[in-house]
Design a protein around this nucleic acid. Structure first.
Lengths: 107, 107
DNA sequence: TCGATTGTCAAGTATGAACTTCACTATTCT
DNA sequence: AGAATAGTGAAGTTCATACTTGACAATCGA
């Protein structure tokens, strides 16, 4: 149950779900309780709890239970890992599809 | 069939699938044909074609058919949009969970 | 021109996961 | 103490979507 180091596959899988993205965007505003997240989404707290587990395991969200309330906020770890992934791929996607250059190199 | 402007939800949904991530990572190496992508993944070209449509619609991949071969490469548009999304969220996830500051502000 | 290669289209299957419900525990309030 | 609130856990349902197959079209090589 310790904080696993962020894994890009976990992260992208977590962000692949619309509800989880909604949770993330809500938490980008300010921290919320589980119920505070569930209400506007019109789903049960159980469902939110399940999503939170995925988000937490991917390092995108951090939660802390104090008393009976679990407070959820974004976690930098996952976002930094995601940033790093894109940065590492940059040389690949930044290739200018320069038509001229392409044709010249063709042969 | 025109290039739709990148939408972060499309993008994250596209990257949510493991096979599509595998395609992206393969294309980060160099451009590939549809068959060239399908073979190492051990899935049919039909399946790859379906994934390519999703990736293309999200602006992550660009394809061009020349003769009977469709050549696929990464597309900057989607990655730039993804970068922008993370950048915009930065203030939210960059909040230092400074224990001291937290406790002080509590009341 | 014939066969092999590359990809597309339509239609069907099936599996995973996003939910729900219900029962329960733990905390807070009066 | 009793009632209300916040969340957890197990188990079942259902629906999206990632695949397949099979038939076909277009291109290329011999």
């Amino acid at each position: 149950m310790e904080k696993p180091q962020p894994d890009i596959h976990r992260i992208l899988h977590a962000l692949g779900d619309a509800t989880r993205r909604a949770i993330v965007e809500r938490l980008s505003e300010r921290p919320y309780s589980v119920t505070g997240l569930a209400t506007p989404l019109e789903i049960t707290v159980t469902a939110v709890g399940q999503h939170l587990q995925v988000l937490e395991e991917s390092g995108l969200v951090q939660t802390e239970k104090v008393g009976r309330v679990r407070t959820c906020r974004l976690d930098a770890a996952g976002f930094q890992a995601l940033e790093g992934w894109i940065r590492d791929l940059r040389p690949a996607w930044e290739q200018k599809l320069d038509r001229l250059g392409e044709l010249l190199e063709e042969e």
